Measured scan of single mutants.
Amino acid sequence: TTVHIGNVTYHFDNPEEAVKWAKEMAEKLGLRIEIHGDTIRVE
């Protein structure tokens, strides 16, 4: 599972961890997340 924040990509072996981490980052940055299969974007 990959999480994209701007130009930076993070890789997670556990999809649930990826979603949890992306949600925390989105809250901190005042952004929202979009999930497309195994790709998560924070925008």
Rank of each mutant, 00 (worst) to 15 (best):
T1I: 14
A22L: 03
E43I: 15
G6F: 13
K20S: 10
Y10R: 09
K28T: 08
T1F: 12
H11Q: 08
M25T: 05
V19W: 15
N7I: 08
I33R: 00
K20E: 08
E17T: 10
E34K: 12
E17N: 07
E27D: 13
G37I: 03
Y10V: 09
F12G: 00
G30K: 04
V42W: 02
A26S: 06
T2W: 13
R32H: 15
T9F: 09
A18I: 02
T9D: 06
T39M: 09
A22Y: 01
G37C: 05
I33D: 02
H36F: 14
P15G: 10
D13R: 08
E17V: 10
E34H: 15
G6S: 06
I35L: 06
F12W: 03
H11L: 09
K20R: 14
N7Q: 11
H11D: 04
V3H: 00
D13A: 12
H4E: 09
M25R: 04
G30W: 04
T2Q: 08
H36Y: 14
N14Y: 06
K20P: 02
L31P: 01
Y10M: 06
L31A: 14
T39V: 14
F12M: 02
V19R: 09
N14C: 06
G6N: 12
E34D: 07
H4V: 15
E27M: 08
E43C: 09
H4M: 13
E27R: 09
L31N: 05
V42M: 12
L29A: 07
M25I: 13
A18P: 00
W21H: 02
D13T: 13
K20M: 12
V42G: 03
E43W: 13
I40P: 01
E17Y: 09
N7V: 09
I33N: 01
A18S: 02
V42A: 04
H11W: 14
I33A: 05
M25Y: 08
Y10C: 05
W21V: 02
P15L: 15
M25L: 11
W21C: 03
V8W: 14
E24K: 13
T1A: 12
P15H: 15
V42F: 07
V3L: 03
L31D: 05
I5R: 02
G30D: 07
P15Y: 15
K20I: 09
R32C: 09
L31I: 05
K23R: 13
T2I: 11
V42R: 01
D38E: 07
I5D: 01
G37L: 04
A22Q: 00
T39A: 07
M25N: 03
L29N: 09
I33E: 02
A22M: 02
T39C: 13
E16N: 10
W21I: 02
P15F: 15
K23V: 11
D13F: 08
T39R: 05
H4G: 03
G37V: 03
V3F: 02
H11R: 11
I5T: 02
F12V: 01
N14Q: 07
K23L: 14
T9I: 14
I33Y: 12
T1P: 05
V8F: 14
I5C: 07
V19G: 04
D38I: 04
T9N: 06
Y10T: 04
T39D: 07
T2E: 06
W21Y: 07
F12P: 00
M25S: 03
V19S: 05
H11I: 09
A26D: 01
N14W: 05
K20H: 07
V42E: 02
V3C: 04
V3M: 01
H4N: 06
K23W: 10
G30R: 04
I5P: 00
E24S: 12
E27H: 08
T39Y: 08
G30M: 06
V42C: 04
E43M: 15
R41S: 07
G30H: 09
E27W: 06
F12I: 02
V8L: 13
A26R: 02
G6C: 06
F12Y: 03
Y10P: 00
R41G: 03
E16D: 12
R32V: 15
I40Y: 01
L31K: 05
E16W: 11
L31R: 05
K28Q: 11
D38P: 05
K23F: 10
I35A: 04
L29F: 12
G37P: 04
R32A: 14
L29S: 06
A26H: 02
V8C: 13
N14K: 08
R32Q: 15
T1W: 13
E16F: 11
E17A: 11
E24A: 13
V19M: 15
T2V: 11
I35N: 04
